[in-house]
Amino acid sequence: MTLYRRTSATLFADVDQDVVALQADRGYCYGMEGVTAEVWKLLEQPADLNTLCNRLMTQFEVDRVTCEADVAELLQQMEAEQLIERVPG
């Protein structure tokens, strides 16, 4: 089970339903909307893919297979941008 958490170098602000984030080490700004913003909010606490999907499936009309594939891709993007990291196990 891989847990993900926000990196300490990422600052963020809620703007209406969206999230604006700043990766302070790299200097880049990011906009997150919809499911992406929701995943970011859920990562307030470290979470794994299964936990994230359990929560998202109560909020969005999506089946588990699709949800897991989409969220895994999303986590990969966020990790590549150093917005989140894996919790050392």
Partner: peptide, 12 residues
């Protein structure tokens, strides 16, 4: 601003 693309699947 860099967009972290939302999955196209799933509606509220």
């Amino acid at each position: 601003i860099r967009a972290i693309a939302s999955p196209s699947s799933g509606t509220p």
